[in-house]
């Protein structure tokens, strides 16, 4: 735990965020190391989504600092686009582009943001689709796929930018139960390959098995954090205990 911050890829100091009068983040401070897998849990409305959306600046925080991969997030558009290219995100609702084929969904950003030549980006996309287990669906449209397949395409799409960090916002919450596993398996494989990941999820099995660290959010801040063992065996805070008792 060298605290010089050399291998901290994300640094948050006192991050605060308001939506109008409502304060969604009340001061979040944490550091995330390279290759770390962090699972964020907490009750609905506690600011988990807002927190990870601040990390790629889909939301702008108003106080405190966020430094991602050595770049501080400010209003400078070029920095934001640079950060977003390095940070992949997977949404609860998949948000695939319905008018593009699976292959085009995956290659669009590499082609236009990274300016990768077409042949190269196609080949890489096919590799990624193989990695998430659906190379045979490349020519189909998102509407023709099951929810689990769509979410795996979404993961491939994010990975196609070769991101340093992957953010997941409840990636399995919109899925039918029988499809949850196929998505979690892909995420596990990704974690084992050494990707830095922040995952908001209610899948406690995933947290226990894969997470290096668990953050418990409530009322817009981190109430408790620690290793999965610590969390599921001896939580300290009352609110954590209450939440875990409800969810397990």
């Amino acid at each position: 735990m060298a605290d010089l911050g050399q291998d901290d890829i994300i640094i948050c100091e006192g991050v605060k965020k308001w939506f109008g009068d409502f304060q969604a983040l009340t001061g979040v401070t944490t550091r995330i190391k390279e290759q770390e897998v962090v699972v964020v849990i907490g009750p609905s409305g506690s600011g988990k989504s807002t927190f990870i959306r601040c990390i790629n600046r889909l939301e702008a925080h108003q106080e405190g600092t966020i430094v991602v991969d050595g770049i501080e997030l400010t209003n400078d558009l070029r920095n934001i686009e640079k950060i977003r290219a390095e940070v992949g995100m997977v949404f609860q609702q998949f948000n695939l582009f319905p008018h593009l084929t699976v292959l085009d969904n995956v290659t669009l950003a590499p082609l236009w943001v990274r300016k990768t030549p077409k042949g190269e980006s196609d080949a890489q996309a096919m590799q990624l689709l193989e990695r998430v287990g659906i190379p045979e669906q490349a020519e189909k449209y998102p509407g023709q796929l099951s929810g689990g397949q769509q979410q795996r395409v979404a993961i491939a799409r994010a990975l196609a930018m070769n991101p340093k960090i992957m953010l997941f916002d409840e990636p399995t919450s919109a899925l039918d139960p029988e499809m949850i596993k196929e998505v979690l398996d892909v995420m596990k494989e990704l974690a084992q390959s050494g990707m830095t990941m922040i995952v908001v999820t209610h899948e406690m099995g995933f947290a226990r098995e894969v997470a290096d660290r668990v953050l418990f959010f409530d009322y817009g801040t981190i109430v408790e954090e620690g290793t999965p063992e610590h969390f599921f065996t001896s939580p300290e805070h009352d609110r954590t205990k209450l939440f875990l008792s409800q969810i397990l």
Binding site: N56, L58, E81, K82, R84, A85, E86, V87, G88, M89, F91, Q93, N95, L96, F97, L108, A109, W112, V113, A154, R157, A158, M161
Partner: peptide, 11 residues
């Protein structure tokens, strides 16, 4: 969501 997905890819 479509716009957010595109932005999140750095477009």
């Amino acid at each position: 969501g479509q716009i957010e997905a595109a932005k999140a890819l750095g477009m």
